[in-house]
Design a protein around this nucleic acid. Sequence first.
DNA 1: ATGAATAATGAATCATTATTCAATAATAAT
DNA 2: ATTATTATTGAATAATGATTCATTATTCAT
Lengths: 194, 194
Amino acid sequence: MRKREGNKEQAILNAAIKVFAQHGYHRAKISSIADHASVATGSVYLYYKNKESILLTIFDQLWTELTDGLRIIVKRSDIDPSQKLDLVIDKLFDLFIANPALASVFVNEQHHLIKDKRGDIAKQYDDFLDLAEEIIREGVRKKIFNADVDIKIFRHFITGGIRSVLRQWSEHSQTLTLQRLRQNVKYFIKHGLL
Amino acid sequence: MRKREGNKEQAILNAAIKVFAQHGYHRAKISSIADHASVATGSVYLYYKNKESILLTIFDQLWTELTDGLRIIVKRSDIDPSQKLDLVIDKLFDLFIANPALASVFVNEQHHLIKDKRGDIAKQYDDFLDLAEEIIREGVRKKIFNADVDIKIFRHFITGGIRSVLRQWSEHSQTLTLQRLRQNVKYFIKHGLL
DNA sequence: ATGAATAATGAATCATTATTCAATAATAAT
DNA sequence: ATTATTATTGAATAATGATTCATTATTCAT
């Protein structure tokens, strides 16, 4: 028998994140992903059914990680909802500091997957938002947060805003520090413009 | 001589908006756009150089319209910056009420154009944001708006948030009324969560 | 009516790339 | 060392769909 050497599966995934980030999903070539992973073109198909399933796997892992982290934050009873919100934002930013290419894929490519029903990415995204919603509801219940905002709308607004800011950063990282971005987002969500 | 009958150019553009909205830019087929416009496949190329230039034209017209509208709002001296902000949001929402498919293309497809330098879509977007920034600056100067928010970051956050909310609406228009969306966005931008 | 002149057609072409698969290489078991 | 088994390769194939272009249709000027 022969064993698989190294971790080609992960190498291909990392390569795909890089290539998707640089060229966008549709322009990305399997052969280029294979090159980046130091693997033959055909080997990609030993580990992934097709191109789309690579993107699917990226988002699956990403949402799993984000949701697991969020679940822990939601449960905590030692901090108030406002602090929880800060931690969620930190979680997002930390992940993308560690992997800027992933940030770019995250902000730009998810809608390819949501339109088709294949995979459960849309569901995972909803689950994440549902969980985040609990923090807001806790805040409203404890009269810390403003009750006038529609939570369903709010949660989409926030995630969209954060995505947009991250996209900007992923394309012009020189002009903005993530640190500054992070502070501003936290502040703005709570206080608004007035 | 023979004249061009009807307005095929516009018919193709409208068809493209529909098809791009439904399938996304990359999955959209020229032949399908031609069908929707009741025109032969080849005719598309009488009016547009290639597929990308169709998308380019859509965004060019869109940003021109939005920027023209914004310019008028910015100039007004009879209303305060807070009201101006409301009008900008109204402007966006009105446009997309009139044409939901355009909203979907707007929120999902712009990044195809920004990465490449072809066309000046990125510049038009920047111009729009610069103009919007003037409203915020006016508000800060008049002490109506909070001076602690970084305007550059803020403007990306807002547009991203609005996009996200519109995307949600364009995919599930039954559950949310745009009216409600609009009010919430206006309120939230100003007051935040606390 | 006739014939330039231009518009429109859509099947054929071309280019691009995802995917396959026959051949080869590497490993483990005997 | 030999063989069986599985992994890997990358050139060949297949599929897709954008673009072209030879042909046909329509309009207008005379």
